[in-house]
Amino acid sequence: MSDGAPISQSQRDIFSSLIPSSEVRSMAFSKLSLSLILTIVISSTISLAHPGGFPGWGGQGPFGGGSFGLFPEYYQFSCPQANDIVMPVLEKAIAKEPRMAASLLRLHFHDCFVQSGGPNWELPLGRKDSKTANLALSNTNIPAPNSTILNLITSFKRQGLDEVDLVALSGGHTIGVARCTTFKQRLYNQNGNNQPDQTLEKAYLFGLKSVCPRSGGDNNISPLDIASPARFDNTYFKLILWGRGLLTSDEVLFTGNIGKTMELVKAYAKDEGLFFQQFATSMVKMGNINPLTGFNGEVRKNCRHVN
């Protein structure tokens, strides 16, 4: 969600390197931001070990009852060193390629939404890898970058997420980049009349045109948050207020005139703490969209391939 460009082969190799034998900083990435990415990595990018040692495994959930679910102590017995294993590799990977942070956030969004420095939260763990993930399903379920506000609200509602979740999770675009192909129509032909999107601030429009020419350059990239592209903050929402949201799906949160998304953008632009609090809540909520747990799904030996 947060990085409009595809995850590169080198990034995928780093994801794999984080997994033990059988079983993924900005210029000044803060401890808070690393904590954000760490929780994402542990929850959805890797499965460090089979939780066979947890009390209740084999028919009972971790807290009693007969169903499996996600919970923060998932690796307490099977891999108590999970955090210590992941953090050093993660810090090294992000220091080498800062865009990795945004790619991991995007990966978490795709994993939860399709298979159904910043805030910190206690994240329920234990989500298994799908055996049926595929590109077609991703393209069908993930909202397109040129989505209308109604499309966005409908897509999120289908997953049990409301307008508050939509705006808060869109704030993940505070880091990462997008390819020209995802927003070029806004620069030259937004409504089929060979005119740019009128909601784009003029200086920002001219800057984007220099990066994305009318012909060619589809794989050129631009930051989703031009003011602080490598820092997890609330600047994304401030830019939207100024007509500097990069994607149509960003700007319509403020200009769509449906529901309460406009007021939420204003609120998060004004209060970074409020945004962080809701982002954490919505991330946990999204992570619980029909997770594969227990004997469903699998722990991939190579995160790029089904076992």
Rank of each mutant, 00 (worst) to 15 (best):
D3I: 00
R12V: 07
F15D: 09
I19Q: 13
P20G: 07
V24D: 10
S26I: 11
S30I: 14
I37H: 14
S47D: 11
H50I: 12
G56A: 05
G59I: 00
L70M: 12
F71G: 01
Y74A: 09
Y75K: 03
C79D: 09
D84M: 07
I85C: 01
V86E: 00
A95F: 14
P98M: 00
R99E: 11
M100F: 14
A101I: 05
L104W: 05
L105I: 04
L105S: 08
G126I: 02
R127N: 06
D129A: 08
T132C: 00
A133W: 14
A144H: 12
P145F: 06
I149D: 04
T154W: 03
K157D: 10
L161Y: 02
D162Q: 00
D165F: 01
H173T: 12
I175A: 06
G176K: 09
T181F: 04
Y188W: 07
Y188Q: 02
N189D: 11
N191H: 04
A203C: 09
Y204S: 03
G207D: 02
K209N: 00
V211Q: 06
G216D: 03
N219H: 03
S222H: 08
L224M: 12
S228Q: 01
S228W: 02
L239G: 03
S249P: 05
G256A: 01
A269L: 03
F275G: 03
T281M: 10
K285F: 06
M286K: 00
I289P: 08
T293N: 01
T293V: 00
N296L: 13
K301F: 06
H305N: 11
